[in-house]
Amino acid sequence: MPATTFTAEDLRRILREGAGADDGVDLDGDILDAEFEALGYESLALLETGGRIEREFDITLDDDTLTDARTPRALIEAVNARLSASAA
């Protein structure tokens, strides 16, 4: 069990702070398996999101993490895997 967990709420907050939210998208809804692109987030938005996750949670994400994680669920899992690795 990692000392810190990255939750869906963390992701929602960081997306809003760093990249804003599309008016037609309800970030509080069931977004975990939606593709980021369908939620209105292009690669630069994800770069900004990744940077904010890194500095807040004090981890380093591989470049591939952001490009491979096409959905919130995948990104949350990847971040938590990284957090577990740094806690170990």
């Binding site: 804003g20 939210a21 900004e48």
Partner: peptide, 8 residues
């Protein structure tokens, strides 16, 4: 303007 445009 939409929220997506404000941070950028």
């Amino acid at each position: 303007l939409p929220g997506r445009l404000l941070p950028q």
